[in-house]
């Protein structure tokens, strides 16, 4: 099947007076229809920036320096602003961490939904209203017909995020970018939102890029996972494989440093140091200074390309 989205060697650059920073450096992946790709990494790893680049929402002076983004085989990274705006919402839906950023505080949610539907689909006003109601019901808003007239602030955090998901999916896009959609929510509500996102995307055949820092959320929701480190893909692969037998030492360290439900009071495994700042990247592999297996080759330029799913000169054996 043709991929919904192809990202090819994407490079995002931010010119500063101390030099050019590369928050995203040569990222490539494909996304199949209906697939949920989890993008995980620490803050500053470039995971949100990748998503923003896809929907053309980079804040100046950040810009795509090279690479291609193809939606259904059509390049969208060089589209004029007006065309891009049409694609946003119609073909790519968005869910952000703070639901209030995606909702107009002065408009009842029912109106926002039907307006979005009418903007992107050729339907009558009545049809749009019916669809909006159906969308609210689908995301599990209780008494949806009455809540159509409610304003965003009248919903709880979890309910608001449901409305945002309805809004993201109402024009039936083929791709949804969800950037930390559950980070602001409580554990019990987070589980509901993940389950909802999974069910809806499965039902509608929508592909999802799920950006999060939470490995647990990835394990639960994603089909494939891309691990990012200092702007680069460290590892990409099916979620079960990556999480049970990681091949990149960073992924391994990341999973190992999480306190697990079953573990006792032993010391946690820790990765020494912190992710380098973008203006102080080491030559060679960005992870080399923290890597327990780093060798001279890793410290020398240039950094390794993806090698059997892991950007590592010496990927860990599946057995270890």
């Amino acid at each position: 099947m043709d991929p919904v989205l192809s990202v090819r060697d994407l490079v995002v650059e931010i010119p500063t007076r101390h030099g050019v920073l590369r928050p995203v450096d040569g990222v490539s992946y494909d996304l199949a229809p209906g697939e949920i790709l989890g993008v995980v990494g620490e803050s500053g790893a470039g995971k949100s920036m990748t998503g923003n680049a896809v929907i053309g929402l980079l804040d100046r002076p950040a810009h795509i320096a090279s690479g291609e983004i193809l939606l259904h085989g059509r390049r969208i990274d060089n589209l004029p602003l007006k065309e891009m705006r049409k694609i946003r919402g119609k073909e790519i839906g968005m869910v952000f961490q703070d639901p209030l950023t995606s909702l107009n505080p002065l408009l009842p949610v029912g109106e926002q939904l039907s307006e979005t539907i009418q903007t992107h689909l050729k339907v009558s006003a009545q049809e749009a209203r019916d669809r909006a109601l159906a969308a609210l019901e689908e995301v599990g808003i209780p008494a949806a017909a009455e809540r159509m007239g409610s304003f965003p602030h009248e919903f709880s955090g979890g309910m608001r995020q449901r409305v945002v998901i309805a809004l993201a999916l109402c024009a039936e896009p083929s791709l949804v970018i969800a950037d930390e959609p559950t980070t602001a929510l409580d554990v019990s509500v987070q589980a509901q939102i993940i389950a909802l996102l999974k069910r809806l995307c499965h039902d509608h055949g929508t592909a999802v890029i799920l950006v999060t820092h939470d490995m647990g959320v990835i394990a639960e929701a994603a089909d494939r996972v891309a691990v990012m480190y200092a702007g680069q893909l460290a590892e990409i692969g099916p979620v079960r494989e990556v999480m049970t037998t990681p091949r990149h030492p960073y992924t391994d360290g990341l999973i190992g440093s999480m306190p697990a439900h079953s573990a006792g009071h032993d010391r946690l495994r820790q990765i020494p140091g912190a992710m380098p700042r973008l203006n102080a990247l080491p030559p060679g592999c960005a992870f080399a200074p923290r890597c327990p297996y780093a060798q001279d080759k890793c410290r020398a330029a240039p950094h390794p390309d993806l090698n059997a799913g892991a950007a590592c000169w010496f990927p860990m054996e599946a057995a270890s």
């Binding site: 554990v187 589980a191 509901q192 993940i194 389950a195 647990g216 394990a219 639960e220 439900h261």
Partner: peptide
Amino acid sequence: AAPKLDSFGREEEPPT
């Protein structure tokens, strides 16, 4: 409800 590292493709009913 807490997401776990080994809960791949969990289809459990979330809390209400």
